[in-house]
Design a protein around this nucleic acid. Structure first.
Length: 471
RNA sequence: GGCGCCGUAGCCAAGUGGUAAGGCAGAGGUCUGCAAAACCUCCAUCCCCGGUUCAAAUCCGGGCGGCGCCUCCA
């Protein structure tokens, strides 16, 4: 069974779905006003690992939703600056997000709702009505607010001081007047040139927090949903406000588990658009690194620890992944028959370590260590000729199973299938080089190897012949 | 001012009471036309101080340092 850290209790708890065998999970997705950066993707990669662990290691079915926030101040401003409609503007950014997510091996969730889809707007309107009925709202200048004084348990997730905001804290001073600084807007009255909808609270647009509550409950059939995930910076106010809305409207607990992913740092500072210290996936690829290596780097430390992004780290991730790739290629060269107890035992040990690591609050770093232990043990067995085809296949299957969760080897393979030099040309040059070596013309042979290396293809000579791989 | 997290070898990173996983880099060796890959060997006593304990990186207290949240933010 999975043990998962729950922000609500600030401790690890055993996890099981509340209804049948299906895990109902929601993660706060991107606000699509600019291309997502790799810090954003840390969250989505970690959520993806949770999803895959639940599916492949725990055997649950998944019903997961990740939303696109496609209306807010920034998206509206972005569309206006670009001179296109809000929908066209966010369509393009969603396309880019999906493209990056796919390159990073992130599985598509079952649901990817958009705030401005009609069914979702209606659900938001219904939620506001329910909140009004329960006495949690007030209107001011055409906007509808949530009055947190009406909800005693407000602040439980973030462990806020019940006395509220103290001297020294920065206080929200936006243009909308509120009864209490902590009150937040549910439905924002629209300005003249802004997109606007009327779903029962007057013409306007959804406040940021409302969409997540409404869409999670509409799509996942809560409350309570099993898991709600997102970046740590969302704990307050976003998730706190989601809880207030959902619980105020339904009078039921909103989510059983809250999972929060720590930040990616750059030069030991939070990577963010406002600090202008972020990298996008294309920027990383442009430096010559692969998406698989980025995914590996993101998995090389625990999701609840800050991770400092560096190019040296990318380099190390590439090298580590190369070791796994070389190992898998080497497994294919095992031709002896039979099986050896030591190999079987090493594989068993790796399987149990890996499962233990991942089901222990998604300890991906320890999971990777289990893989490398296996790599060393089996490599040694190959050297000692103490391994048979049966064992090699079993080792291969073990790595494949691990990768159902980590999703990094599969990505590499897909990348390898598209080398920078056409495969036919590589094979032709390998043949030429083989001939040169045959007549002991090592200068010519080395020349071919060097020129391919410059083009990103490495050659390795083994007993069985020459193998190529991407740099 | 409030709340929280973190500080393990050159770099990255597990371990949260019983005498320090793993990866990268480095050194030496085996193998090899060379190179690569692979294997073997070597490479830390866990920020500092004090305490609890038979026993602490791991618990408690106090420092020092870093980061995050309290405002939009993954």
């Amino acid at each position: 069974m999975l043990r998962l850290y729950n922000t609500l209790s600030r401790s690890e708890e055993p996890f099981e779905p509340s209804r049948g065998n299906t895990v109902r999970m929601y993660a706060c997705g991107p606000t699509v006003y600019a291309r997502a950066h790799i810090g954003n993707f840390r969250t989505f990669v970690c959520v993806d690992v949770l999803r895959r662990t639940l599916k492949h290691l725990c055997g649950y079915e998944m019903h997961e939703a990740i939303n696109y926030t496609d209306v807010d101040d920034k998206t509206i401003a972005g569309a206006q600056n670009a001179g296109v409609s809000l929908r066209d503007y966010t369509d393009e950014l969603i396309r880019l997000f999906r493209q990056d997510a796919e390159q990073l091996g992130i599985e598509a969730p079952e649901e990817t709702p958009r705030a401005t889809d009609e069914a979702n707007l209606r659900a938001m309107g219904d939620m506001i009505l329910a909140l009004e009925r329960n006495g949690h709202t007030y209107r001011r200048d055409g906007s509808t607010y949530f009055k947190i004084a009406t909800l005693p348990q407000y602040g439980r997730l973030a462990r806020l001081d019940p006395e509220g905001i103290r001297a020294g804290a920065r206080v929200d001073n936006d243009e909308y007047s509120k009864d209490d600084a902590r009150d937040f807007v549910l439905w924002k009255a629209s300005k003249p040139d802004e997109p606007s909808w009327d779903v029962g609270a007057g013409p306007g647009r959804p406040g940021w927090h409302l969409e997540c509550s409404a869409m999670a409950l509409r799509l996942l059939g809560g409350p309570p949903i099993d898991i709600h995930a997102g970046g740590v910076d969302l704990i307050f106010p976003h998730h706190e406000n989601e809880i207030a809305q959902s619980e105020g409207a339904t009078k039921e607990p909103f989510a059983r588990f809250w999972m929060h992913i720590e930040h990616l740092l750059v030069e030991n500072e939070k990577m963010s658009k406002s600090l202008d210290n972020f990298y996008t996936l294309p920027a990383v690829l442009a430096r010559g690194y692969r998406a698989s290596a980025l995914r590996y780097l993101l998995l090389s430390s625990h999701y609840r620890k800050q991770l400092n992004f560096t190019w040296a780290g990318m380099e190390q991730a590439e090298e580590s992944l190369r070791r796994i790739g070389d190992f898998l290629a080497r497994l294919e060269t095992v031709s002896a028959g039979g099986t050896y107890p030591a190999a079987v035992e090493a594989i068993e040990k790796a399987r149990s370590s890996f499962a233990g690591a991942l089901t222990g609050d998604l300890n991906t770093a320890a999971g990777l260590a289990a893989i490398f232990d296996l790599v060393r043990d089996i490599n040694a067995a190959i050297d000692a000729k103490a391994i048979g085809r049966v064992d090699a296949d079993a080792a291969r299957r073990a790595i494949d199973d691990f990768d159902c969760v980590l999703g990094v080897v599969t990505l590499r393979r897909a990348e390898d299938a598209q080398p920078p030099v056409p495969v036919e040309e590589i094979e032709r040059l390998i043949e030429e080089r083989r001939a040169a070596r045959g007549r002991r013309d090592f200068a010519a042979a080395d020349g071919i190897r060097n020129s391919l290396a410059e083009r990103g293809i490495l050659l390795e000579d083994n007993a069985g012949g020459t193998r190529w791989k991407r740099k």
